[in-house]
Design a protein around this nucleic acid. Structure first.
Lengths: 113, 113
DNA sequence: AAATTATACATAGAACCACGAGGTATGTCA
DNA sequence: TGACATACCTCGTGGTTCTATGTATAATTT
């Protein structure tokens, strides 16, 4: 009966992070954890394939930039195409979560929760 | 870029349907579609394996009952154990959807949506 | 100075989950 | 009698995320 918190809607979250500013992978993981109050602890094994996929589909563009520390980081930038995709995904999330909530509201056992 | 509406959180939805009354499989599909304004059109290939899993884990119990038409239907009943599981899942959904919304709120590009 | 931790990127394999496609069968209506 | 809605079920596939692992550098601790 153990509950495993799967991410899902990963693309939506990743794109929404990049809507504010360009970020590099590691930063996105830390930021996502912070903004979600540590509900989401995305793994590298999840993030990087997603980023590469978004890059292939033209939603993001990557460029390298040296950090003050001397390390080279790979930043990702949201393209116009990616911004449009983000809006789509956000709308889909509204629909999806709204539908779940509607079903739950029809369930008497959960009101006093 | 096509958006595929995956169900996910299927167990939660199935359990919440059974919290109100006993139902049989086909009925659950119809009810879920109705309550979600047709956002969720669960497939038999999704529902029946889930129901069998819930039965194995003791969250639901099945019994057969003849319909007025003469057909025998398989009804599912939520057990006490299943009700507890439902509460857990509902809380997990609150946490999850709350976290997604928190991340989206931090995203400037989506406010005028 | 050495060891550990945090930073930073990446991939391959395993596991899970929902779906599509298909199968079986009965009741109803034209 | 043919079509359609009802009603149940399973198998194989594909997509998605995780675990595990690998590489490498900077910062911190011992």
């Amino acid at each position: 009966m153990a509950r495993k918190q799967t991410m899902d809607h990963t693309q939506l979250l990743v794109l929404s992070l990049l809507a504010g500013e360009d970020m590099y992978g590691y930063q996105m993981i830390v930021e996502l954890a912070r903004r979600s109050d540590h509900t989401f602890e995305m793994k590298e094994g999840t993030l990087y394939p997603v980023l590469h996929g978004l890059e292939r589909s033209g939603a993001v563009e990557a460029y390298e930039q040296e950090a003050p520390t001397g390390r080279v980081r790979k930043y990702y930038h949201l393209t116009r195409r990616g911004a449009a995709f983000l809006k789509e995904e956000a709308r889909a999330w509204q629909t999806y979560s709204g539908a779940v909530n509607a079903v739950l509201r029809a369930c008497p056992a959960l009101d006093p929760a």
